[in-house]
Design a binder for these strands. Structure first.
Lengths: 231, 231
DNA sequence: TCAAAAGTGTTCTTTCTACACCCATGG
DNA sequence: CCATGGGTGTAGAAAGAACACTTTTGA
């Protein structure tokens, strides 16, 4: 069979990306949501999405969509999967590829956009999302939990410098469970991937808490030692 | 904006599924491969694939493609992800959604098809696969390892009845590492999800080894106890 | 001076790892 | 009778879980 015959006549699909954009605000993981601007479901709570263009990869589309909105580059993203139910978008059949994105609220505040009709909401409000977006969020969180336990990706949600209390609160928020302070510190410090600065955060306590930074070189050295990240 | 304006004029894509079909044959995980029948790359070693139709979900397409080939229904499948590089298929741009499928060689042998131009190969031969199919296999195996460690999906690769030695060999093959016999048995049996039959397999040894079956009810009871699968 | 968050070790429990011999049977 | 794979327990090491008090300092 010639390629002409083979490829021709096959159905073609609209393909979009939907982004589960997560930030760590206050003491909680929050989801960046939008108000849908077009029918159907105008005004419905929605993930950030957009169609994939002819001349870009799916990853590029996801990056473009997130960058356009947040003004940020080099956002950490991970693909969750493809969603292709027939009626998932009541407007027309659209196959959507979902990503989660982790952004540091600091970067976001400094970013150009941040205005528009976007809104940070708690994860329990995912109930209100349109179409299959709640399912997408659920799947993204499940994947984030797995990944965050095995790789040092959580730092993408924190400012460059953070305290151990912040770090612990972040993981508590990701896993939705309390962690023991002493055990947590013992574990994270024993990995030797954090560098303690001399400066202290005096905002959250009178005494002040040391700032730490994640050190990528130390992390890679840990891997070379045959050890691996685990929280 | 009206939906007409919004959806219209967007690029549309060919969307395919590619299936990493895995079987446990002899003492190894093998990959079911095919010889590509069309240009470009006629005759190249390939995964089983097919285009998604207008009126089916992506999951349905994957099931259809696997069923058509193997004659099997209810094959265990899990989505790996969407692959959308611009030139991944040199014939034309195609976005492909990858699944891995676990099939029991017993079922396969009883299936109608099994002939055709298919071939079971060792995983190291994934090197020879066309396009980005090697990457797909690598990603599928990575995901299988994660899933098989946490959920009782390995049994899909075994016949209904199996010996503990077979089960151990299966996991050794999935993880590509030797496991300690006594520790393995202790762990799997302590979960109380297997049922020992009175019959023995006398094919692989003179003494004979007890057959076991996976018991789904026992597994669910284990979950209810708050325990979880782990190998 | 006191409220509020930071910081710090030890014990116990559980899980993991390493390891070697006897058993049953068909040929 | 013996070669082959089947089956079994224990002890030491490592990791995980539980737990409470002292320190610092700005208000």
């Amino acid at each position: 069979m010639t390629p002409q015959n083979f490829y021709k006549g096959q159905a073609r699909f609209l393909v979009s990306v939907d982004c589960v954009i997560l930030g760590f605000i206050g003491n909680d993981i929050k989801l960046l949501t939008f108000r849908r601007k077009i029918e159907p479901n105008v005004g419905g709570l929605s993930l950030l999405g957009g169609f994939v263009y002819e001349d870009e990869t799916i990853d590029e589309a996801a990056n473009r969509v997130v960058s356009a909105l947040t003004g940020l580059d080099n956002v950490y993203m991970d693909q969750v999967g493809a969603y292709g139910n027939l009626d998932r978008d009541p407007g027309e059949r659209v196959i959507s590829v979902v990503y989660y994105a982790l952004i540091s609220i600091d970067d976001y505040k400094n970013s150009i956009i941040s205005a528009s009709d976007s809104q940070w909401v708690n994860l329990d409000r995912a109930e209100e999302l349109i179409f299959d977006h709640k399912q997408m969020v659920d799947d993204a969180i499940t994947q984030l939990r797995q990944q965050a336990a095995l790789f040092p990706i959580g730092f993408n949600l924190l400012p460059e410098r953070f305290t151990l209390t912040q770090l612990q609160t972040l993981y508590e928020s990701i896993y939705a469970e309390k962690l023991d302070k002493r055990n947590f510190r013992k574990k994270i410090l024993s990995m030797n991937i954090l560098e303690r600065l001399d400066e202290k955060d005096k905002i959250n306590s009178k005494r002040g808490a040391y700032y730490f930074v994640f050190n990528k070189e130390k992390y890679e050295e840990m891997l070379r030692r045959g050890s691996s990240f685990s929280i």
